[in-house]
Design a protein around this nucleic acid. Structure first.
Lengths: 357, 357
DNA sequence: TCAGCATCTGTAAACGGTTGCAGCCGCTGC
DNA sequence: GCAGCGGCTGCAACCGTTTACAGATGCTGA
């Protein structure tokens, strides 16, 4: 592999000149620069990132740390960030922390130490200790999905989004509305769920409705969890006429259970999700849309700007939300679900479950 | 930031000893090792990856290059690979090549040169030039989803999987079966589609059925493409009674269109997908299941094994497929779709489209 | 002609590790 | 008593860049 010395020899100049010429610094005669570039091309030379990084202290890489890189939301944001950093010639180092163990290990070992110029934390609610660990890295840190003073962040207004979703249901005439969240079973703290609950609660309070704790179920932010949560709601003496799920994936699970139970959406149950997942349209799910990839990309750019030295590139930004009305929501049926449920239920369990497994 | 010299001074030994002690090499007295480890801990010392990499020539990082890091399949495989490399203390550098331009740029600039110890190519059909470029990297290269002599690979038997899917339909009594593939509009070559077509074709041929080219439509391997492809099939004078989509995402699009058209699945149309997408169960889609994350993880481990020096860790592996029968497939209705279609069609276009946009 | 200056270029010292080689030490066996 | 040996340890070269500094060069104006 050719080194800078080879190029210098071939171009008849010193390594210092090669370095300057190749990086487009000033103070190199144009003719010299051309000779260097030509020599480098002939030798198929590329700088060694390790050597450059050792000399400069910069790595031209940013880390993305996220719990579930494969889930839709995270993958979208990740891809957005990847695009942004790639455009600037940076590399993207991915660190997944899918379990509490992996997470603990990550934050104690900090494998990204001295490996990256910036860190992008994707939907991870940092504990105080974790926050300190990242600050100790001495590189700009940015967050998607949460805020921290002194860190860049791109967020949405979860409270407002949830309020919009539930207000939509209220506007349709629903009065008994379930909430599907996710922090209880989640092995890691997850503030998003709580914030969305607040918004839902406020919407109810505004029309004088109380929060009914038996309608507040845990969907674990997954399809399977959403299924279980919906089953729980259906098994109540007085099931709700509508459900707001704090993520589309939980809503999908809910829809599955409803269909299996022979119930019709929205006649028997209205469902609103959150995110506008790629398949929300396929399942005709009413939801709160947020620009996911854009959030990742935006934060990536903010971090790189900060590296580039632009002052105060590290700000807090809020992305826009949009209610997307599809066909999973409608006016509640006059009769309500309660009477209907008992007849349906017998046909549900045995056959369906077996078929699915 | 503490350097190895600081540790050496503090422990009262030379840097060479620190290096050896910290990496667990032999020839260090246990007492010395403990002193070094203690000193390192007190100083909160971590080795500089750049310096280590410069000295050793290894980076302890592997690259993953993939066209669409955010799509379900890719994200799954990526997460699998990430897990595998993380377990071994390696980092994962992600390179997306979502457009032909990005792809061309990636393969000419090769930003991963001297940055990684191995490369994992995720579902990218390499051109000869691209293959050469990667070989020139002089590090082990592995593929998910395709094969190349001299490279590690983890694949599935696409031909057999497609054969299974179509045979399932034939077994149910279908004779006019559509195929939804994706290489025509894909901006990049995509052999998977062609291979799955072969399998489908063979299944038909085995029972004496011919390949009907008007039933071979392009779904672009996306939900939207699947919708358009299904619309095309429905607009035929003699639509098929069943469709095999080469990916679940296309099948989802097909299901959407069928539902919007007021057609019932599987009575009016059977649909089989491929992949067993996370939401295939939600949509009750019969499909060919493949272990996606496992393929990424397996290949990741193979590459690391090869780095570890284990001879011939670079092999070709084939992952198992499984037909998962859900409720999107059934026996064809006696009447067929053709007569039905005309009455349904009028109610389809105007209202539904508007509602969706 | 020459000081003064700007512009280019080269020298060499970092950057922070790894590792071949040699030296030291305490034993062992003769 | 001493050669031989094996286990530890240190010395110093090296990995491939960047960059402060100094030197060379050519030009300007007096």
């Amino acid at each position: 592999m050719a080194t800078i010395d080879d190029v210098a020899r071939r171009a008849g100049v010193s390594t210092a000149t090669v370095s300057r010429a190749l990086r487009g610094l000033g103070n190199v005669r144009n003719q010299t620069r051309l000779a260097v570039v030509a020599a480098a091309a002939e030798l198929d030379y590329v700088v060694s990132p390790s050597a450059a990084s050792l000399a400069t202290g910069r790595t031209r890489a940013v880390a993305v740390v996220t719990p579930y890189p494969s889930r839709w939301f995270y993958a979208q944001a990740l891809a957005g960030a990847e695009n942004a950093v790639r455009e600037q010639g940076f590399g993207l180092l991915l660190y997944g922390v899918p379990t509490p163990e992996a997470r603990a290990r990550f934050f104690t070992e900090l494998p990204l130490r001295k490996r990256v110029d910036a860190v992008l934390v994707l939907c991870l609610d940092l504990s105080a200790a974790e926050e300190d660990a990242l600050r100790g890295l001495d590189v700009p840190v940015g967050l998607v999905g949460s805020r921290r003073t002194g860190m860049a962040s791109v967020c949405i207004d979860d409270e407002a989004g949830a309020h919009t979703a539930v207000s939509h249901l209220i506007g349709l005439g629903h009065r008994r509305i379930g909430f599907m969240g996710g922090e209880r079973s989640e092995p890691m703290p997850f503030a998003t769920s709580a914030t969305r609950r607040s918004g839902a609660r406020r919407a109810l309070a505004e029309v004088g409705l109380e929060w009914v704790s038996e309608l507040d179920v845990d969907g674990e932010f997954t399809v399977g969890g959403g299924e279980r949560a919906m089953e729980r709601l259906l098994s109540l003496p007085y099931p709700p006429s509508a459900v707001f799920a704090a993520s589309d994936e939980m809503a999908f699970g809910a829809l599955t259970v409803l269909r299996r139970a022979g119930l019709r959406v929205p006649r028997d149950m209205s469902v609103v999700g959150f995110d506008d997942h790629e398949l929300a349209g396929v399942l005709d799910l009413t939801t709160i849309a947020q620009p996911v990839a854009e959030q990742g990309a935006l934060l990536g750019r903010m971090l790189l700007d900060a590296l580039g030295g632009s002052p105060d590139a590290l700000v807090e930004t809020t992305a826009a939300l949009r209610l997307v009305v599809r066909r999973s929501t409608g006016i509640p049926s006059a009769r309500g679900l309660a009477g209907r449920r008992c007849t349906e239920r017998s046909s549900r369990d045995p056959a369906d479950r077996a078929a699915h497994q």
